[in-house]
């Protein structure tokens, strides 16, 4: 997982690229044009970020006819979680994350 993991962490270490992943999570399978809508980034910048995400395998591109569609690929992040969270801990980690979300929501309200 060495060189591949480096690519994943580098790709994730930029807010613009995490934003692109968030957009794909919300609406999977978008073209470059669709991704550029409502973003304060140039088309060139989005193209560059997508290329790094694809190289890290965080984004999978699939051709449908003449359209290149971009999908969030959950596999690399799953492998990172497999590496550091063992299956016995998974339930407890999730419970704590839910508790945090709930308590922080109450404080905000």
């Amino acid at each position: 997982m060495g060189a591949d993991a480096d690519k994943v962490f580098k790709a994730l270490a930029a807010p613009e690229r995490r934003l692109l992943l968030d957009r794909l999570r919300k609406d999977n399978g978008q073209t470059l044009g669709q991704l550029c809508e409502h973003l304060a980034m140039t088309r060139q910048a989005v193209t560059k970020h997508l290329k790094l995400l694809e190289e890290a395998n965080l984004v999978a591109a699939i051709w449908r006819g003449r359209e290149k569609l971009h999908y969030l690929n959950p596999m690399p992040i799953h492998e990172i979680s497999e590496r550091w969270i063992c299956k016995y801990e998974r339930g407890r980690v999730r419970a704590l994350a839910e508790l945090k979300a709930k308590l922080e929501k109450e404080t905000d309200g």
Partner: peptide, 11 residues
């Protein structure tokens, strides 16, 4: 989204 779709890529 008119459809639901997930893609998984692994080497």
């Amino acid at each position: 989204m008119a459809k639901s779709e997930f893609v998984y890529v692994t080497f």
